[in-house]
Design a protein around this nucleic acid. Sequence first.
DNA 1: TCTGGGGTCCTAGGACCC
DNA 2: TCTGGGGTCCTAGGACCC
Length: 439
Amino acid sequence: MTNLTGNSRRIALVDANSFYCSAERIFRPDLEGVPLVVLSNNDGCVVARSSEVKALGVAMGTPWFQMKDLARQHRIQAFSSNYTLYGDISRRFMAVLGRFVPPDEQEVYSIDESFLDFTHQPQLDLTDTGRMIRDQVRQWTGLPVCVGFGPTKTLAKFANNAAKKQPAWGGVCDLTALTDRERWEVLGQFPVRDVWGIGGRLSVQLRELGINTAGDLARVDPKRARERWGVVMERTIQELTGTSCVAWENQPPPKQQIIASRSFAGPLYTVEQLAEPIRFHMARAAEKLRQQGSAAGRLGVFLETNRFRPQDPQYHPTRSLPLPQSTDDTAVLTTWAIALLRSVFREGYRYVKAGVMLDDLRPRSVQQGSLFGAAPPEQDLRRETLMGVLDRANTKWGRGTMGVGSAGVKDQSGWMMNRENLSPCYTTSWADVRAVRAD
DNA sequence: TCTGGGGTCCTAGGACCC
DNA sequence: TCTGGGGTCCTAGGACCC
């Protein structure tokens, strides 16, 4: 039988429980124990469920309108997603975790998860460390978290999932402290679907082959798995058996693609109507582009009809083009985006969503000048200043304060999203800061 | 009537080039 | 009858993640 800890790394994965729900509860202690969901943009579907709602059998992604009866029956509280709040809570959470390891031994993996590498602190008892992390995060941010330890990232993720599912373990699971036999036993207790990298489709295929548990998968020959499913599956199996294949990324790599899109509040029908959200999304995407110091070499636009209404004629075009010169200029990008919109638009459809994509991103500093049509340097400089002013104004006074053309000013009533149950921005807006009375 | 948004990697086929 | 090899770009789709 394979030795699961042939290498001696000690990796932790810390993950907040029902992060968005827990973030809403921090400033509403009265919601402790109350069934709670957080909804996606447009109040469309459930993206976070408190444990009470999970116990009711509500699946992730359930459309909100389909569960309104259930919600009334069980007095489920629903919040529109408040990413300003969650982003700020996340920063505080990550800062607390950063106290346990040197900076390059923390990898912030997502808004609510972080890897920590304890390999270079062999003196620590990991189960004790896990408990300390839990206590400190709870005390300093109010978030409940679970901690998993393993010799690879995949096993650390697995341990974290195990800790969440086995309340008796007290929110901490250290696979590195177990004997080989115990470890295989734990792997055998959880379905293969719980393994990082095994989604709904693959787990069905695996089960048809009699591979039901994580332990079964760990026993599959990686080479044969590669022939059948590809290199990703091969790496997953190697990680499960203790061989590290997933790189450590303490610095988030620059994005290779930037997308901005939204469903509309209601359907749109004309190219003039669609131009509004396209301008708006292009402004957001270009802002993100400038934030990471990149310029885009390729730009795309896509439209969607409602795929849940088979009775409607369906059309979901996407078209992109290489730009003559890579740029981060909102006005230039918007002009091309509108041209693309006009080229893909067709009359007679009920459009429910539109978006833009920026690809072929490169650092702005090494941008190649184009032989033809390049702007003279002083004009480039003026544009750069203009973009800087625009980004600062939108940061300071709110998105949509300033835009190019009509991106920030026109009527947004037809397509701007619904957010009926938005909580206050307790930590980022002075108007929303909670008052504590001393009497 | 109402069904999220933003990413990654991998594969495969066709066009085209030398 | 015999019908290269290797590379890029583009598009599309499939799978996964949070």
